[in-house]
């Protein structure tokens, strides 16, 4: 029997008032796979992540995590082995950088010295000096905040990691650095990774497989290596960023 996928959604529906964002979305992410979901602004990528995590309750459909139906609620066992890099980093303003990175360890009542050492180790992994540990989020640049967010996401070596638009708002060089870090970390740890982005450089750096979200469903999915040969005109338009084509922004 094949191993259950790490994440599976079936016929997921979610609307906000008259806006039908997800309309019967089916998606599978195999264990250890790095899937990147692409799609235009407002196509519902963030809503999809929230539905998977139980931060939004789907109107219909089901989410399975590790082969277990979730009933639309956050699953404690899944979240214990989970990390997420948020679009705006979402660092806690009232805590220092190391307390952010070590948040889970401190919550588990680990000795602070030990938690701090682990935080500094993870900050080093994302290329930040130990001096950064005692700064507060308000003192960080956007790129540094993203790296701290990444360090927090990987602090307890999660089995599943989500990346929500990891490179938006960064200059191309910093975006390249973040893409490289994500690729290396995912390869090193063998974690299952689900990334949403509209940055093609991210797609090429991170993805094993690509799925395109459009009109509330997965319109196309295939190996990242085969992306350039995809026959779907919408995929072609998206990856080349052409203004003319079948794509119409909602």
């Amino acid at each position: 029997m094949a191993e259950a996928p790490a994440i599976r959604t079936h016929a997921l529906h979610k609307a906000f008032g008259a806006t039908r964002v997800l309309r019967g979305l089916d998606l599978e992410v195999a264990r250890g796979e790095s899937l990147v979901v692409i799609g235009g602004s407002g196509s519902g990528k963030s809503v999809l992540l929230k539905c998977i995590l139980g931060l939004e309750i789907p109107d219909a459909g089901e989410v399975w995590l590790d082969g277990q139906p979730t009933g639309g609620r956050p699953r404690p066992a899944f979240l214990e082995r989970f990390g997420m890099l948020f679009q705006g980093a979402a660092l806690f303003d009232s805590l220092s950088v190391w307390q952010n990175v070590a948040f889970r360890l401190l919550r588990d009542r680990r000795p602070p010295a030990q938690a701090r050492a682990r935080a500094i180790e993870k900050l080093a992994r994302v290329g930040l000096a130990p001096e950064v540990a005692d700064l507060f989020p308000a003192q960080l640049s956007g790129g540094m905040a993203k790296r701290v967010g990444l360090a927090r996401a990987i602090a307890t070596d999660p089995a599943v990691i989500f990346f929500d638009e990891p490179t938006t708002g960064l200059d191309p060089i910093m975006a390249g650095v973040i893409n490289g870090l994500i690729r290396d970390i995912v390869a090193e740890t063998g974690a299952t990774a689900l990334t949403i982005t509209h940055d093609m450089a991210s797609v090429r750096a991170i993805a094993d497989r690509v799925a395109m979200l459009h009109a509330g469903t997965i319109r196309w999915t295939g190996r990242a290596a085969g992306l350039d040969d995809a026959e779907d005109p919408m995929v072609q338009q998206f990856i080349h960023g052409r203004p003319e084509g079948p794509f119409t922004q909602p």
């Binding site: 929230k50 995590l53 139980g54 931060l55 956050p74 404690p76 979240l79 214990e80 989970f82 990390g83 997420m84 948020f86 679009q87 705006g88 979402a90 660092l91 806690f92 303003d93 948040f103 889970r104 919550r107 927090r152 989500f162």
Partner: peptide, 16 residues
């Protein structure tokens, strides 16, 4: 502000 900057979502993903 925490809600708007997704810090509340981040708490949930950190099992809190």
């Amino acid at each position: 502000t925490m809600k708007v900057t997704q810090q509340i979502d981040a708490l949930v993903t950190l099992s809190t």
